[in-house]
Amino acid sequence: MIDRSIHPNTRTLLDAWRRMQADPQSHALTGPGAHDHESLIDRIFVVEQREDQSWLVRTSGTTLNALVGRNLVNNNYLDLWTGPDRAMMAAFLESIRFDGAPGVVRGRGETLNGERVELEITLMPLSAESGRSPRLRMLGLYQTLGAEPMLTGKPVFRHRISMLVPPDTRRSGVQLRLVAAQ
């Protein structure tokens, strides 16, 4: 995933995910701790894929709940999205699940009064294995990109997708190139 212009909270979470993937057996992670990023922790959520292909929200932070105007726990994450955006989000979650790597959604949230806020939603698998895991969980970060005070406490009612940044599955390291000459 190309992460040139992402929010600092997104970068922090992606860096932590990469460290965990590099050494999954380690329980003592190096780098910043949760106490260093309190504003990030309240925007985190965890979703779990169910057998019916829904994505049940297992936990959600207090700031996230306030932004959407309700507690998301035990609700289908896909219910935040409608129409083509819902179908794109379902396919996007599937690509993250299959590739076993993080992805980022850029979009906007709208209140019932028409106020808008730009959003960046990061999703990353909580399992080191990609493929067909029936109970996969993903860690998510719901980050606003400015203009949050303009909402004046009104909940985000509608979510729209502007851009999807799929998992980057390129392998780093030595690459072999075959050149044939006649």
Score class of each variant (00 low, 15 high):
Arg58Asp: 05
Phe98Val: 14
Phe98Cys: 15
Ser60Leu: 03
Thr63Phe: 08
Glu38His: 13
Ile44Tyr: 04
Leu14Phe: 10
Asp85Phe: 02
Thr30His: 10
Glu48Asp: 08
Leu67Tyr: 08
Gln21Glu: 06
Arg106Pro: 00
Glu38Thr: 14
Arg19Trp: 02
Asn65Ile: 01
Ile44Met: 14
Glu48Ser: 12
Leu64Tyr: 04
Asp85Met: 01
Ser54Cys: 11
Ser95Arg: 14
Ala34Ile: 10
Val47Pro: 07
Thr63Leu: 11
Val73Ile: 12
Asp36Val: 05
Gly69Phe: 01
Glu94Ala: 14
Ala66Trp: 06
Gly83Thr: 06
Arg97Ala: 15
Gly107His: 01
Leu40Trp: 02
Glu51Thr: 15
Ala28Tyr: 09
Ala16Glu: 09
Val105Glu: 13
Gly100Asn: 03
Ala87Asn: 10
Ala87Cys: 09
Asp79Ile: 05
Leu78Thr: 00
Ala91Gln: 13
Pro24Ala: 00
Met20Gln: 12
Val68Leu: 02
Leu67Asp: 10
Gln21Trp: 05
Glu94Phe: 13
Arg58His: 02
Ile41Val: 13
Ala91Leu: 12
Glu51Cys: 15
Asp99Asn: 15
Ser39Thr: 13
Pro24Cys: 00
Arg11Ser: 13
Val68Thr: 03
Arg86Trp: 04
Val73Trp: 04
Gln25Arg: 11
Leu64Val: 02
Arg11Cys: 08
Tyr77Val: 02
Gln49Phe: 09
Gln49Thr: 13
Leu64Lys: 01
Ala90His: 08
Ala22Lys: 08
Phe45Cys: 08
Pro32Ile: 07
Phe92Cys: 00
Ala34Glu: 09
Arg106Glu: 07
Leu14Pro: 02
Thr10Met: 04
Ser26Asp: 11
Ala91Tyr: 04
Arg18Trp: 08
Arg19Ser: 06
Leu72Val: 04
Ala66His: 10
Leu67Lys: 07
Val47Ile: 14
Met89Glu: 08
Trp55Tyr: 14
Gly61Thr: 01
Thr10Cys: 09
Pro102His: 04
Thr62Asp: 10
Glu51Ala: 15
Thr30Tyr: 07
Phe98Thr: 15
Ser26Phe: 01
Gly83Lys: 09
Asn75Arg: 15
Asp23Cys: 06
Asp15Thr: 11
Arg11His: 11
Arg18Glu: 13
Ser95His: 08
Leu64Met: 05
Ala28Val: 10
Gly83Gln: 08
Trp81Lys: 00
Asn74Pro: 09
Val73Ala: 14
Ala22Asp: 09
Glu48Tyr: 07
Glu38Asn: 12
Asp36Met: 07
Leu93His: 05
Gly61Trp: 02
His35Leu: 12
Ala28Lys: 09
Val57His: 06
Asp23Glu: 09
Thr12Tyr: 10
Trp55Ser: 07
Ala34Cys: 10
Val47Ala: 09
Gln53Lys: 15
Thr59Glu: 11
Ser54Tyr: 05
Ala91Glu: 14
Ser95Thr: 15
Asp23Ala: 09
Val104Glu: 02
Ser95Met: 11
